[in-house]
Write a protein that binds this DNA or RNA. Structure first.
Lengths: 342, 342
DNA sequence: CCCGTTTCCCAAAGCGTTTTCAATAATCCG
DNA sequence: CGGATTATTGAAAACGCTTTGGGAAACGGG
């Protein structure tokens, strides 16, 4: 069933039917009712491609995801973010389009989406410091919102980020208050902007207490379970091992925990661990005291909000860019305790 | 730059340019070269919507994902599956379209995708037993491939599944060989087809040795960390606690491990654990002996293959449906050992 | 009752491709 | 050399919608 057929059944012109369907005011209420009624009876929906061709819009939003495991997105937080964004999209009549590409082809992917008119806007994931995608998208004229943000860029653009710096500063402060002095940082890849900010927060907390950050206690890498395990083991085997860890992801924290077990150390007593927790729906452990003390921020909620920001941006392109900074909660679990006496 | 403009620059008709671009034989080699050359110089790509309208195809594949956490897809395996499928799509010129919907709206979502011509086919995730989506899609005439399969359906359709039954039978056999006799099963939601098959494999192994499956040792639910933890605690606190666990997901297995710790039991010595491992890229722990003994099967690879099957199906709709059954590997880790002496 | 407004509807022109049908130029074969 | 192919290109229709520019009927005020 297409528009022409439907309008034939109604003895109306396609024009009128289209207008009735799209809520234009110049059609009689009774006619509109008839049209709407027939549309649902004959199970008619406009063909999306034809509609898109006529309106110049695709009602779709793109997410470009680099293929490699290295990237922070093909990882647990992906599913939750997508779920959040998808909620917003579907309630606004947008489709979500995901483009998985070779790592070095991301720029081409954005260009291609724009050129072929496949999407009306994109969400930028995992921004790096001075991320070149931002000026590029601005030049392309493709509406976008960044999940996270990129330091060191002159331009003004829309983003939504967690206050990573403050979160890690608070986490570190918390450990310092418990008497810990040798605190290790297991950070994400520091080409990622969020990781750089986390480190800054970590070091700021130390410096504020007159402590010198020890580069030997700072590790950065992909946030896998193995990375947490390996790095923690190496650190624990040092002559002066850390008494506490600040860890950038739940998954790595599990690796740290395994390392502690390997060394016969009790988490929360011999060694404390604070981790960042993206509040993944399948990981939240119900009502009891959580295993890990963590800085917590819902990726799903971030997805919802970022999507909304982008839709607003597409609707009113001339509005100034918006920035949203979410604060993470610091939730106390069973993985932290006072520093052991020397 | 659109087709008309490009052809004007070349002093050719849009017809010829289109044909040159699409590799039709009736255009002179030299002309084709000129066209291709100009296209890349002026950075031209055909508008996807116009192309779609003209050809009647959208070059996109849909994935309908129910919103709720309950569903097995908004979970860690999602990201990996998507990455695998996305690889295949992008190398075949398809886009991936994800539709996140309220749980009870999934059927509408499929219908709508079809009606509006948004996608050329869909992948069905997380089939339940006698899943009604399968006959529905068949009736709709929307090409599809199921990741997993659905018992109890008469029709012939394409699917790719892991041999869940055999995997769990082998896992259970392995534990029986080690002398375990009280073995617990922590299964996924048994409305899910794969969970039913896993249970069947588990029970078959027991029965083959003349053991009666004890319903008190079989738990089914969402495969979260908390579920693993809670169920394991309850089982361990029974008068005759199990000496081994067969667990349906890595995440739940981590919960089991936490429960063992809570009770002061050593995993691999006091209690054995075998889990199913979807070989998620961020979880694989490098070269050392893995923590968990597991039945292992790569979700990413499944994604790649399912996508390919669907594309083939779209290209040749008249070919008979295909079924692929992948075998899981049984990989020995440090979570299993001989049953303790009574 | 007349004329300017509204109200309601329609024909037709796009949107940017592909594809059918036809035309011209080049080539072939006897 | 002439008719029949074959190679190469183009004009125009089609895909299914939205939107512009009218136009006719109904209305309202003087």
């Amino acid at each position: 069933m297409n528009l022409k057929e439907l309008s034939a059944k109604l003895n109306l012109s396609p024009t009128t039917v289209s207008r009735a369907l799209n809520g234009y005011p110049e059609v009689k209420e009774e006619t509109r009712r008839r049209v709407l009624d027939a549309a649902s009876r004959y199970d008619y929906s406009p063909n999306a491609r034809a509609q898109g061709l006529a309106t110049g819009r695709s009602q779709a939003i793109g997410h470009v995801i680099p293929l490699s495991t290295k990237h922070e997105m093909v990882n647990p937080i992906f599913g939750d973010f997508i779920a959040g964004a998808g909620e917003t999209y579907s309630s606004h009549g947008y489709e979500m389009l995901i483009s998985v590409v070779e790592d070095d082809r991301a720029d081409d992917a954005y260009r291609s989406l724009k050129r072929r008119g496949v999407v009306d806007g994109v969400i930028v994931h995992g921004p790096r410091m001075e991320d070149s995608r931002i000026p590029m998208l601005q030049e392309l004229g493709l509406p976008f919102v960044v999940h996270g943000r990129a330091s060191g860029l002159a331009q003004d653009y829309s983003w939504l980020d967690v206050n990573n710096r403050r979160a890690f500063q608070r986490a570190t402060d918390f450990l310092l208050d418990l008497g810990h002095r040798r605190i290790a940082l297991l950070n994400g890849l520091e080409t990622m902007d969020f990781a750089a900010r986390r480190r800054a927060g970590f070091e700021a907390a130390l410096t504020a207490r007159g402590l010198n950050p020890d580069p030997g206690l700072e590790v950065s890498g992909e946030m896998t379970e193995a990375m947490g395990h390996g790095s923690a083991l190496a650190l624990l085997d040092r002559p002066m091992p850390p008494t506490a860890f600040v860890v950038s992801s739940m998954i790595s924290a599990m690796g740290v925990r395994r390392a502690l077990e390997d060394r016969g150390l009790r988490m929360g007593q011999d060694v404390s661990v604070v981790t960042h927790d993206d509040a993944l729906s399948y990981f939240t452990s119900g009502a009891d005291v959580p295993l890990f003390t963590s800085t917590r921020s819902s990726v799903r909620e971030a997805g919802r909000q970022v999507a909304q920001m982008l839709i607003d941006r597409i609707d009113t392109p001339d509005a100034p860019p918006r920035q949203v900074l979410l604060e993470a909660e610091l939730t106390v679990g069973r993985s932290t305790g006072p520093a052991p006496k020397q």
